[in-house]
Nucleic acid binder design. Structure first.
Lengths: 211, 211
DNA sequence: AATTTCACCGATAGTACTATCGGTGAAATT
DNA sequence: AATTTCACCGATAGTACTATCGGTGAAATT
């Protein structure tokens, strides 16, 4: 039992992190309606009024939660993934391109569930962020698809590639949800199914670009 | 301008419907946080206190909204759809099997968006209903898939068929969202992509059952 | 015609939460 | 050692909403 001699700044930073952690848990377990300054503060071990020492208001807390959690997750996922989608001929790499985001979602269940839930909730201050993240995610996937042979010259072609990216995202998310709910305990089984569906979209590749 | 002579019962039923309509709109536009007895009542043209003449509380309103709207939609969709999935060899029928639920979602945008949003919101009184509906939906699809040749003898096979059903649902919902947001104006284009992905899952059919 | 029913009203008590304010004591600075 | 800073506290005013209650007048029943 060593007594840590915390400086005032360190102590403040610690309670700030406690508040963010508590907010993440409450948001995940009880939804946005359950997130109050009273609950977060109590969970972090400070008085309700002290909440405002760390955040201007609840929206400020949510913003911080997003920028210090959600944003990083998104970028890390896509950085790792785009490395492996570039060679769709290689079976293992192709599989990795789906495994990486799937595992990333499952490794951060709270953030994943919250950002999913918030995305289409017009009353949520996080909605805008989550939708922007979704768009970025889709756009990155579109780039990858174009790099792997899809054409997006006409409006219609562009839409089609976006739809494919959208569908790939939907498949991955749905399998992640099933896994987190305990219905699909084996991620490799889920990957098998995603890959099978993806064989289908490959049929939309222009013939001359197929490997 | 004919003055309709409404009986007391008819008048009551009319305000009840006004309340339900208003609730649906507010729920869709502002989310659950925006749905208050004050707003619903005002939108329906009655005093806040008169809300309780029609519903015990807000949860009661939500329950009614679900049972008199959501439930019917789900059943109608699946009834229409299962007629056409039974003959996956017939291209037009196969396509219909996806078009029917897709169109059904797009025809009831508020209900569709609300039930989607509410499904994973632990704070929502509708969450339970929406999740049950999702399960029913998936189970019905699983039955259809088994009827069309998939096997579900072992635990693993059963899981796989459930995953496929889950994925089909995810694809359809995602395309419906894109259409309702205006990104995919042409539903037939979206159907093309869903069908392409589905060619992939057909590869998971046991060889001896393929048409 | 007399009586009863009841959808609706305004007023209001109660609840939950937000956000501010002055005060305190220990850490940090001088 | 004296002074300043500031994370945290309890108290509290303000806001938004829920749900009840007694009253009213027109419809429904007798």
């Amino acid at each position: 039992m060593t007594t840590a001699p915390l400086s005032r700044n360190e102590a403040k930073e610690l309670t700030r992190r406690r508040l963010l952690r508590a907010a993440l848990r409450i948001l995940d377990e009880e939804g946005e309606a359950g997130l109050t300054t009273v609950k977060v503060s109590r969970a972090a071990g400070i008085a309700q009024s002290s909440f405002y020492v760390h955040f201007r208001d609840k929206q400020d807390l949510l913003k911080s939660l997003w920028h210090e959690g959600g944003g990083r997750l998104l970028r890390a996922t896509h950085q790792a993934r785009s490395l492996s989608i570039e060679a769709p001929t290689d079976r293992e790499r192709f599989r990795d391109a789906f495994r990486i985001p799937l595992e990333s979602m499952c490794r951060h269940p709270e953030l994943f569930r919250i950002s999913r839930r918030v995305r289409h909730d017009p009353g949520s201050p996080l909605a805008e962020f989550a939708r922007e993240a979704e768009k970025i995610s889709r756009d990155l996937l579109v780039e990858d698809l174009i790099a792997s042979g899809f054409t997006a010259g006409t409006e219609q072609e562009r839409r089609r590639v976006e739809m494919i990216a959208d569908c790939l995202g939907a498949l991955t998310e749905r399998m992640a949800i099933g896994h987190l709910e305990g219905r699909y305990p084996d991620l490799e089984e889920a990957l098998d199914v995603i890959i099978a569906f993806s064989r289908g979209y490959l049929s939309l590749l222009p013939r001359e670009n197929r490997a």
